[in-house]
Amino acid sequence: MIDISIRLRRAILLNDIALVQRIVKSNPKSLKNADIEDRSNTSLHLAAKEGFVEIVEYLIYAGHEDKGISKNADWETPLMVAAEFKQVDVALLLIEKCSRCVPWTNKSGMDALMLSCRSGTTTLLVPLLTAVPIPCSATSHDIHGTTALHYASASGELKAMRILLEHGANAFAKNMYNWTPIAYSSTKEAELYFKSLIKEFEIRRVERERGEREREREREVGGETVTLPPRGDSITGMKGMRGTGVRLVTSDDMEIMGPPSMAARNEWSPVEARRAMTPTASKSSDSWAGFGKAGGRVRASSGD
């Protein structure tokens, strides 16, 4: 007779919900059914990877996650697996039914948001960034200091970059290798678009802070109408911003962020093949293999 654990996995892979239900009801202790030979993936991991929404929903109903969020040998939750394999419907269901797993991270310090950016599953970004009670953070980073914005930039996901910036991602964030997200731009076009986004959001921020200062000054005079100085502190008159504490994008900032053609003066340039320490070169399990798309610009490598 075939072992129960094998039968259950086969039923899941066949997407046979009726058979899964019969096996689980007859063998409730085999519900999770972690497979040691498959990185200890549970029944829910397997169903999430395959995108079988009905089975995922039943497993949750049967109590699969009642005693704690399932994690495999790499500390990945079923939600992370769904995000990595672009199973959007399953991921949305897990965000709704098992929301406490949203901010969890794997052994590499990556959460579902970073995995979604790396895999290009942009549909999940807003649900993850607005999940209740604890959403993913656009400023979080993995064990290498790499943020979701780094991953989105390396994947050429332009929509993801805009969404992350709208939710507070730091375009100037550096990972442990001293690279900013723009250094990982997959193409020249993606780099130019990224720069335009940075300028757009910087303009928004400066205008917002200027408006807040004006409202504060009005409150200080008891709500009376006051004549404010000329708009010398607007975007068109950046000289007036000196001494205000508002940080604008400067030429130095843009040199730090790119473009790579300007980096010849910087020994740590991400376009120099001899320089190590960029994720595209790693052969480890948490490398960025697959980010260098055919026809894309050559980015940093270790020189191995």
Rank of each mutant, 00 (worst) to 15 (best):
V132M: 14
L94W: 04
A91Q: 02
T130S: 07
H141P: 03
L129Q: 04
N106D: 06
F172V: 00
V132S: 15
V132F: 14
C101K: 10
K97A: 09
L92T: 05
F172G: 02
P127L: 03
A138C: 13
D74S: 15
P127K: 05
E166Y: 08
A154Y: 12
T105D: 02
I198C: 03
A160L: 09
Q87L: 09
S186C: 08
S155Q: 10
N175A: 07
L149N: 10
S70D: 13
D111I: 02
A62K: 03
F85H: 15
D89L: 01
A190L: 04
D89W: 00
M176K: 14
G168Q: 04
D111V: 07
I134T: 15
Y151P: 00
S186N: 11
K188M: 05
E84P: 01
N106R: 01
A83R: 07
S140E: 12
M110H: 10
M114P: 12
I95P: 00
Y58W: 15
N106G: 01
A183I: 04
F172K: 03
A131C: 06
I69T: 13
Y61T: 15
S116R: 08
V126G: 05
M161T: 14
A112G: 02
K86F: 10
S155I: 03
Y184W: 11
S119A: 15
L164E: 04
L125P: 02
S99I: 07
A173I: 01
L92Y: 04
G109K: 01
I143E: 13
P103C: 05
